[in-house]
Protein backbone atom coordinates (compact mmCIF):
# COMPACT_ATOMS: atom_id res chain seq x y z
CA UNK A 1 0.00 0.00 0.00
CA UNK A 2 1.27 3.46 -0.88
CA UNK A 3 1.73 6.03 1.90
CA UNK A 4 3.04 9.54 1.52
CA UNK A 5 5.68 11.03 3.77
CA UNK A 6 4.31 13.87 5.91
CA UNK A 7 7.60 15.71 5.65
CA UNK A 8 8.55 15.58 1.96
CA UNK A 9 5.52 13.99 0.20
CA UNK A 10 7.51 11.04 -1.20
CA UNK A 11 5.46 7.89 -1.83
CA UNK A 12 6.45 4.88 0.24
CA UNK A 13 5.25 1.37 -0.56
CA UNK A 14 4.51 -0.31 2.79
CA UNK A 15 3.87 -3.91 3.74
CA UNK A 16 1.27 -4.95 6.34
CA UNK A 17 3.95 -5.08 9.04
CA UNK A 18 4.27 -1.30 8.88
CA UNK A 19 0.85 -0.83 10.51
CA UNK A 20 0.52 -0.72 14.27
CA UNK A 21 -2.58 0.14 16.35
CA UNK A 22 -4.30 1.85 13.43
CA UNK A 23 -1.19 3.84 12.55
CA UNK A 24 1.17 3.68 9.60
CA UNK A 25 4.66 3.70 11.07
CA UNK A 26 7.55 3.98 8.66
CA UNK A 27 10.76 5.82 7.85
CA UNK A 28 10.55 7.72 4.55
CA UNK A 29 12.79 6.16 1.93
CA UNK A 30 13.67 9.59 0.53
CA UNK A 31 14.23 11.91 3.50
CA UNK A 32 14.43 9.45 6.40
CA UNK A 33 11.63 11.19 8.33
CA UNK A 34 9.94 8.92 10.93
CA UNK A 35 6.22 8.94 10.04
CA UNK A 36 3.56 7.69 12.45
CA UNK A 37 0.09 8.78 11.45
CA UNK A 38 -3.41 7.37 11.74
CA UNK A 39 -4.64 5.34 8.82
CA UNK A 40 -7.84 6.98 7.50
CA UNK A 41 -10.64 4.97 5.87
CA UNK A 42 -9.82 4.43 2.20
CA UNK A 43 -12.69 6.42 0.70
CA UNK A 44 -11.71 9.49 2.68
CA UNK A 45 -8.12 8.93 1.63
CA UNK A 46 -9.03 9.04 -2.07
CA UNK A 47 -11.10 12.19 -1.72
CA UNK A 48 -8.52 13.91 0.45
CA UNK A 49 -5.55 12.93 -1.66
CA UNK A 50 -7.10 12.96 -5.14
CA UNK A 51 -4.74 15.65 -6.45
CA UNK A 52 -1.69 13.79 -5.21
CA UNK A 53 -3.02 10.43 -6.45
CA UNK A 54 -3.50 11.79 -9.97
CA UNK A 55 -0.09 13.45 -9.86
CA UNK A 56 1.49 10.13 -8.88
CA UNK A 57 -0.23 8.27 -11.73
CA UNK A 58 0.77 10.98 -14.21
CA UNK A 59 4.40 10.70 -13.14
CA UNK A 60 4.78 7.50 -15.20
CA UNK A 61 6.04 8.12 -18.72
CA UNK A 62 3.48 5.81 -20.37
CA UNK A 63 0.60 7.82 -18.91
CA UNK A 64 -0.79 10.65 -21.05
CA UNK A 65 -3.56 11.77 -18.70
CA UNK A 66 -5.89 10.70 -15.91
CA UNK A 67 -9.16 11.79 -14.36
CA UNK A 68 -11.44 10.80 -11.51
CA UNK A 69 -15.13 10.54 -12.32
CA UNK A 70 -17.77 10.52 -9.61
CA UNK A 71 -20.69 8.46 -10.91
CA UNK A 72 -23.14 10.74 -9.11
CA UNK A 73 -21.52 14.16 -9.51
CA UNK A 74 -19.34 14.00 -12.62
CA UNK A 75 -15.64 14.79 -12.98
CA UNK A 76 -13.94 15.36 -9.62
CA UNK A 77 -10.32 15.88 -10.59
CA UNK A 78 -8.53 15.86 -13.91
CA UNK A 79 -5.04 15.87 -15.32
CA UNK A 80 -5.98 15.37 -18.93
CA UNK A 81 -4.30 17.05 -21.93
CA UNK A 82 -5.49 20.63 -22.58
CA UNK A 83 -6.90 19.65 -25.96
CA UNK A 84 -9.87 18.13 -24.12
CA UNK A 85 -12.38 20.50 -22.54
CA UNK A 86 -14.09 19.82 -19.22
CA UNK A 87 -17.27 18.99 -21.19
CA UNK A 88 -15.34 16.43 -23.29
CA UNK A 89 -14.05 14.76 -20.13
CA UNK A 90 -17.55 14.73 -18.60
CA UNK A 91 -18.84 12.90 -21.70
CA UNK A 92 -15.96 10.42 -21.58
CA UNK A 93 -16.63 9.69 -17.91
CA UNK A 94 -20.37 9.31 -18.42
CA UNK A 95 -20.10 6.98 -21.41
CA UNK A 96 -17.36 4.87 -19.84
CA UNK A 97 -19.47 4.48 -16.71
CA UNK A 98 -22.50 3.48 -18.81
CA UNK A 99 -20.46 0.92 -20.72
CA UNK A 100 -18.88 -0.43 -17.54
CA UNK A 101 -22.25 -0.99 -15.85
CA UNK A 102 -23.74 -2.38 -19.04
CA UNK A 103 -20.85 -4.88 -19.26
CA UNK A 104 -21.38 -5.87 -15.65
CA UNK A 105 -25.01 -6.73 -16.40
CA UNK A 106 -23.73 -9.64 -18.51
CA UNK A 107 -20.50 -10.34 -16.64
CA UNK A 108 -20.62 -9.30 -12.96
CA UNK A 109 -16.95 -10.22 -12.44
CA UNK A 110 -15.67 -7.37 -14.61
CA UNK A 111 -12.75 -5.66 -12.87
CA UNK A 112 -11.75 -3.07 -15.40
CA UNK A 113 -12.12 -1.88 -18.94
CA UNK A 114 -9.68 -0.90 -21.70
CA UNK A 115 -10.99 1.15 -24.62
CA UNK A 116 -8.77 1.77 -27.60
CA UNK A 117 -9.47 4.97 -29.51
CA UNK A 118 -6.98 5.67 -32.31
CA UNK A 119 -3.59 4.81 -30.78
CA UNK A 120 -4.55 5.66 -27.20
CA UNK A 121 -5.80 3.31 -24.50
CA UNK A 122 -8.33 4.41 -21.89
CA UNK A 123 -8.09 2.21 -18.78
CA UNK A 124 -11.16 2.40 -16.59
CA UNK A 125 -11.22 1.06 -13.03
CA UNK A 126 -13.85 1.34 -10.32
CA UNK A 127 -12.83 2.83 -7.00
CA UNK A 128 -14.71 2.91 -3.70
CA UNK A 129 -17.24 5.66 -3.05
CA UNK A 130 -18.79 5.88 -6.56
CA UNK A 131 -15.54 6.78 -8.26
CA UNK A 132 -14.05 5.71 -11.56
CA UNK A 133 -10.42 6.34 -12.39
CA UNK A 134 -9.69 6.72 -16.10
CA UNK A 135 -6.05 6.52 -17.17
CA UNK A 136 -4.98 7.30 -20.74
CA UNK A 137 -1.85 5.47 -21.85
CA UNK A 138 0.25 4.81 -24.91
CA UNK A 139 0.35 1.07 -24.17
CA UNK A 140 -2.44 -1.52 -23.88
CA UNK A 141 -1.43 -2.50 -20.35
CA UNK A 142 -0.81 -0.31 -17.35
CA UNK A 143 2.76 -0.12 -16.08
CA UNK A 144 3.09 -2.60 -13.18
CA UNK A 145 3.64 0.15 -10.64
CA UNK A 146 0.49 2.00 -11.73
CA UNK A 147 -1.51 -1.23 -11.73
CA UNK A 148 -0.37 -2.02 -8.19
CA UNK A 149 -1.13 1.54 -7.11
CA UNK A 150 -4.70 1.25 -8.51
CA UNK A 151 -5.24 -2.12 -6.85
CA UNK A 152 -4.13 -0.66 -3.53
CA UNK A 153 -6.64 2.17 -3.88
CA UNK A 154 -9.46 -0.15 -4.92
Amino acid sequence: MIFFCEECGEKNDLEGSAFSNGKAVFQCRACGYRNAYSFCPRKKEIHRDKGRILKTICSFSEVIGVFLYDTENGVRETRMPDVLTRADIEILGREFFRSYTSGQSAYPDIQGMCIRIADKYFMVHRMPDHLLVVIVTRTPTLPDAVHKFILDLA
Binding site: I91, E95, S99, S102, Y107, Q111, M113, I115, I117, A118
Partner: peptide, 22 residues
Protein backbone atom coordinates in the same frame (compact mmCIF):
# COMPACT_ATOMS: atom_id res chain seq x y z
CA UNK B 1 -25.41 -0.79 -26.41
CA UNK B 2 -21.68 -0.39 -25.63
CA UNK B 3 -20.63 -0.65 -29.27
CA UNK B 4 -23.00 2.12 -30.33
CA UNK B 5 -22.13 4.37 -27.42
CA UNK B 6 -18.35 4.02 -27.77
CA UNK B 7 -18.53 4.36 -31.56
CA UNK B 8 -20.24 7.74 -31.16
CA UNK B 9 -17.64 8.74 -28.58
CA UNK B 10 -14.60 7.68 -30.58
CA UNK B 11 -16.14 8.32 -34.01
CA UNK B 12 -14.32 6.19 -36.59
CA UNK B 13 -11.28 5.97 -34.33
CA UNK B 14 -12.89 3.57 -31.86
CA UNK B 15 -11.03 0.29 -32.32
CA UNK B 16 -12.25 -1.94 -29.51
CA UNK B 17 -13.29 -2.18 -25.87
CA UNK B 18 -12.02 -4.93 -23.61
CA UNK B 19 -13.80 -5.82 -20.38
CA UNK B 20 -11.27 -7.37 -18.03
CA UNK B 21 -12.77 -10.19 -16.00
CA UNK B 22 -11.71 -11.89 -12.80
Amino acid sequence: SCGRSLSVLGKNKFKYAAFLRK
